[in-house]
């Protein structure tokens, strides 16, 4: 078993901060998700000038530190999404440049994502789970900070049972376990009065999609600059906004907030289940935490599930 002490961890982080760009997401609880480090809110894809094409430069190597359990799961899922139907070049360029280090407070047998996961055992000790070759090499290069110990001979603090996640997250993750039921229920709910209620309440500001670690829709914008250079850039977009489902001539497939908000759920719980076998939600609570209208995704799903069950 590989372990690292609290003091060595701090030294290791200080050292890596000198060698790489470093971003700590753990200290940004409830803030926009980590996805921006791989999929920025706005990025130039290419630039055309004097009949030459230049593609955007990719960042230098960086460390993304402190992802918790739902965030690690989300990253693994986002990788799957970005792989289909074709590998997203820009996303995976950044993924390649990154070392992702998770920090979890619960006992995990298998690392749900990231290159290295640190399991906080308390008493200043962390168990180190190596998940990828990249993670293995990182540890090898900084091996003076890590120790390999024999679990049977040495006393390593055991992690207490239970989870450090909030009660809300725990119950949301229970709901997510049966993603087939969720898919059927959400699909069935089209026309349910709850969507009228939500359309009254929802501001349509799009915050939920920006903070969601798994929302990944974007739009493409072409510009011809005053300097005659053309650029194509992609920008985060949100399915709750009116232009997202507009096509030529101004026709819109989802002409009102009710349809658009339903579609947000439909994509997460119905389409995602059909395409990937699971919901595009990890129960992190970012959407609920950041919603100015205090819409709680768990409450919405609970009502839908209750009514779906009693209608079967």
């Amino acid at each position: 078993m590989i372990i690292i002490s609290e003091k060595n961890l701090q030294d290791f982080l200080e050292k890596t901060k000198k060698d790489f760009d470093f971003f700590d997401v753990g200290s940004q609880d409830g803030k926009p998700s980590f996805k921006k480090y791989f999929f920025p809110p706005e990025e130039e894809i290419f630039r055309l000038s004097d009949s030459r094409i230049g593609t955007a430069k990719v960042s230098k190597k960086f460390i993304l530190f402190g992802l918790n359990l739902p965030q690690l799961e989300a990253l693994t899922q986002l990788d799957e999404i970005m792989e289909k139907p074709n590998k997203d070049y820009f996303y995976f360029q950044r993924r390649k440049q990154s070392f992702v280090i998770g920090l979890v407070k619960e006992k995990i047998d298998v690392a749900p994502g990231g290159d290295i996961v640190l399991e906080d055992r308390g008493k200043g000790q962390y168990r180190v789970l190596v998940n990828t070759l990249k993670g293995k090499n990182l540890i090898k290069n900084y091996n003076n900070f890590f120790e390999t110990v024999d679990e049977k001979k040495e006393k390593i603090p055991q992690i207490p049972e239970g989870s450090s996640l909030s009660e809300w997250s725990k119950s949301m993750r229970q709901i997510l376990l049966d993603s087939e039921l969720l898919a059927n229920a959400v699909e069935w709910s089209h026309g349910h009065p709850i969507w009228d209620e939500l359309a009254q309440k929802c501001l349509g500001c799009g915050i939920c999609t920006y903070v969601c670690p798994l929302c990944h829709c974007f739009s493409i914008e072409d510009r011809v600059g005053l300097d005659d250079k053309c650029s194509r850039c992609r920008k985060w977009d949100a399915c709750t906004l009116p232009n997202f489902s507009k096509i030529a001539g101004g026709h819109s497939f989802r002409p009102n907030l009710k349809e658009r908000y339903y579609n947000w759920f439909y994509h997460k719980f119905v389409r995602a289940y059909r395409e990937y076998g699971k919901s595009q939600c990890v129960g992190c609570g970012a959407c609920k935490h950041n919603c100015p209208a205090k819409i709680d995704i768990q409450e919405v799903l609970s009502v839908i599930l209750r009514d779906y069950r009693s209608n079967q």
């Binding site: 501001l203 799009g206 915050i207 920006y210 232009n243 935490h289 950041n290």
Partner: peptide, 22 residues
């Protein structure tokens, strides 16, 4: 030219501001 259909919140989140409302 087109109007932005997204809210100030989009840019406010990028700026890392705490939300005034929530």
């Amino acid at each position: 030219p087109r109007y932005h259909d997204y809210s100030v919140c989009f840019e406010c989140k990028q700026a890392g501001n705490p939300c005034r409302i929530t």
